[in-house]
Design a protein around this nucleic acid. Structure first.
Lengths: 107, 107
DNA sequence: TTGACACATAAGCATTTGCTTATGTATTAT
DNA sequence: ATAATACATAAGCAAATGCTTATGTGTCAA
């Protein structure tokens, strides 16, 4: 069987465009589920399932407020992803400076 | 039907741990397919399929060399991902400075 | 030219994913 | 207490994913 690492869960979680859009909305502040549903062509259970994936990946938190449930982002949990992609940042930074063509031609 | 954007393909491509590991290897330079196969517990067709996904996402290039085929990374294609994750960078940077607790408590 | 090599592609299959329509579970309103 | 609201969870299903074992296709070697 395959081991599921949390870091892997994060990458998988943001692979879905709906979930990325949800994170973008949550970056503005807390949202209740029904308000999120109203932003997508999707039923409420579908949204709840996306939120569960995000929660299991550690990318969001939730709290009760009466009979509503408010989700908030945990943006620091995106740092492992930023770190991984950041490994490659130097490549396009060099390219933007125009002194990185050697990589294209090396070998 | 759902439209498949290239940016979405990139996120999906790096969702798989094998493909991320391949990209990490390719960041050292060009690799031939069989050498990549030797690094994973996987058949050659499986690796070729991973490489195809990476190629369709624009994350790698390939060229023939005799009867071998050499793959190289196109790291600048990761920039859209870096940009998206980078939107959230300020959150954990603020947190590291210790002056970002307000976000935890706001509302 | 014939065979071996390096790789891609096809076909098949089990698992996962993303959605739907029920249905369950708190919480609030009456 | 009862009904309505807000959401989660279960079950079912089509499509996508990741792998496998054939089987192509192009290149080199004999």
């Amino acid at each position: 069987m395959k081991s599921k690492t949390p870091i892997n869960d994060s990458f998988r979680a943001i692979a879905d465009p709906t979930r990325r859009a949800v994170l973008d909305l949550l970056s503005e502040g807390e949202w209740k589920v029904n308000d999120l549903v109203g932003r997508f062509r999707m039923t409420q259970p579908a949204m709840s399932q996306h939120l569960r994936v995000l929660k299991q990946a550690g990318l969001v938190n939730s709290r009760r407020a009466g009979r509503e449930r408010l989700y908030r982002i945990r943006p620091d949990q995106l740092k492992p992803i930023a770190d991984w992609v950041g490994q490659y940042e130097r490549f396009w930074k060099r390219k933007l400076r125009g002194l990185g063509e050697f990589l294209e031609k090396e070998k």
